[in-house]
Structure formats: structure tokens, C-alpha cells
Amino acid sequence: MEGQQGFAQFNLYDIFSSFFPGALFLIGVMIPYVGSGIVTTELKIGNLVVWVILAFASGQFLQTIGGYVISGSDAFETRMRQITEEEESEYETTPMDIKFVENVREDFELDANYDAWKRIYKMILAQLESTSRNRTLRLQALYLAMRGTGVAMFLLAFLYVISVMLNDADIIKLSVPELALLPMIIITVGLGGASIVRANEFSEDTVSYMVFEYRLERDDA
């Protein structure tokens, strides 16, 4: 039963982190060319399978790019340095934060000077994934969904600009008027910015719940 639950959570995580932004990206890429002969909208099982695979692959590609733009481990590293090095922060360091750092170092047998927080972040996520505490992982999935969506929107805006230029040069014919793409460029840029902002918020929430759930799991052990 636990194995089936873990498998379901894995699929849900993948849907949010990879399939969702990848599907949005593919749909956005298709819009200017639907009906032009370049893109087919004929619904067949084979086409659907290929589309799903491409959506997952596109999502992975978007996350790879997103990793260079914003990383979830950055928020964790910042928070941990604020705790251990007493740096100024908008977050007030609590006794639970301090205890969390002590527990992590004890559980993973880390030296007091070890501060590779990005590596520790991955270790804690891996540990929580094997427990019943999944709020942190759900927030992580939402963070990745927003990050992937943000990257997808910015890439679409760039592709729309390129499409207009190629259409003007008679290299590729659009199936929609150029004027219709202009508001789409503005919309995608706006959605991209909003998605990145939301991703940052989810990233900070992930760290907060990670501290809380790690402590709960440790107390229950």
C-alpha cells in the first residue's frame, strides 16, 4: 500500500513539475501555426502519446533552464546562513530553527563547519520523500510548476517575436495575424514574471515546512 501511495505521489510530482509547464509550452508553440500545415491538431492515439512524451521532455528542458535562473536550494541556503551566521533577515530566527540545524548535523553526522547547504537540502528532501510528511514535497512541486511556467512564458514571448520576424521575411507563414501575437507577447512576459515571483514564494514556504516537518518526523521516530 505504501509503495502504491509513493508511486502516486511520484506521478503527481512529475505532473506538476514537468508535464504541466511542458504542456503549456507546447500549446503556446502551436498556437501561431495551427492550420498552417506545420502543426496538426488531428486527434489520434499515436499523436496523443507523442504529445505527452514531448510535454514531459519539454518540462524537463524548462526545469533545466530554470535551474540556472532560480534554485529552490538557494532559499534554503540563505535561511540556514541567516541562522548559523546570524545574518540580518526579514525572518526572525526561532529556537526551532536553531534546533533544526543541530538535528540535521547530528543525524547526517556532519561537522559543525560543514556548510554545503544545497547538498543538505537535497538530502533532507530525499529523506522526507520516504516518510508520510508530504507537505514539503507538494510545495516543492508547486514551486517547480511555477518556475517551469515562468521559463515557458519567457521562451514563448521570444519565440513569438522570432515568428513575427520569420513571417515578415516570408520564411514561415503564420496562421494568425501578426497583430494577434503582439498582445500575446505582452501577456506571456507578464505571466512569466508573475510565475517567477510566485515560484520564489513557494520556495520560501518549502523551506519553512521542511524545518517543521523534519522536526515532527524526528520526534515521531
Rank of each mutant, 00 (worst) to 15 (best):
E178F: 03
T93D: 08
L144D: 13
I171P: 13
I120E: 03
E204L: 05
L155R: 08
D115A: 15
Y160H: 04
L110F: 04
A141I: 01
V50M: 09
N134R: 13
T188P: 01
G6M: 14
D168V: 10
D111M: 08
A126L: 03
N134V: 12
A23Y: 03
Y13I: 10
G37I: 05
N47P: 03
L181P: 11
I196P: 02
Q82T: 05
L179V: 12
Q127P: 03
T149D: 02
M123D: 06
G193C: 02
E92N: 10
S203H: 05
L179C: 11
F158P: 04
L216P: 01
T41F: 12
T41M: 14
R81Q: 05
T206I: 04
P183T: 00
L166Y: 10
F10S: 08
Y121H: 12
F19P: 01
N200Y: 06
A141R: 02
L26K: 00
E2R: 07
L43S: 13
A194S: 09
Q63G: 09
R105K: 15
V197R: 10
L191H: 11
E2I: 09
L181Y: 12
I162H: 14
S36M: 03
T149S: 12
G28M: 00
S89P: 01
A169K: 10
K99I: 15
P21M: 05
V101A: 08
E85G: 07
M210E: 09
F61E: 02
L144Q: 12
Q60G: 08
N47V: 00
E2T: 08
Y121S: 00
V176Y: 06
Q5M: 02
G22A: 04
S71F: 05
Y68T: 11
A194G: 13
F100A: 00
L43W: 13
S132E: 12
L139V: 04
S73T: 05
A141C: 05
A169I: 01
A23H: 07
A145V: 06
P32C: 01
P177T: 00
T64N: 07
S203C: 06
R81S: 10
M184I: 10
T78Q: 14
E90Y: 14
A75R: 12
P95T: 15
T94D: 15
E102F: 04
K118T: 10
A55R: 02
F108I: 07
V164T: 04
I53L: 06
I98Q: 15
N113C: 08
F108W: 15
N167Y: 09
I187G: 07
V211R: 06
V207F: 07
A169D: 07
V197S: 09
M123W: 01
L54E: 03
D205V: 06
P183S: 00
G190I: 02
M146G: 05
I120V: 02
F16R: 13
L12A: 07
G35M: 00
K118P: 10
Y143M: 12
D220G: 11
E201D: 13
F56D: 07
L12D: 03
E87H: 14
L26R: 01
R135E: 07
T206K: 05
A221D: 11
Q82C: 06
E85K: 08
G28W: 00
D14L: 14
F10H: 04
M146L: 05
R215K: 14
L155M: 14
V29E: 08
L128K: 05
A199E: 10
V151F: 01
L62P: 01
W117K: 01
M1C: 15
T64H: 03
R138F: 04
L43A: 15
V104N: 06
V197K: 09
A157L: 11
T188V: 02
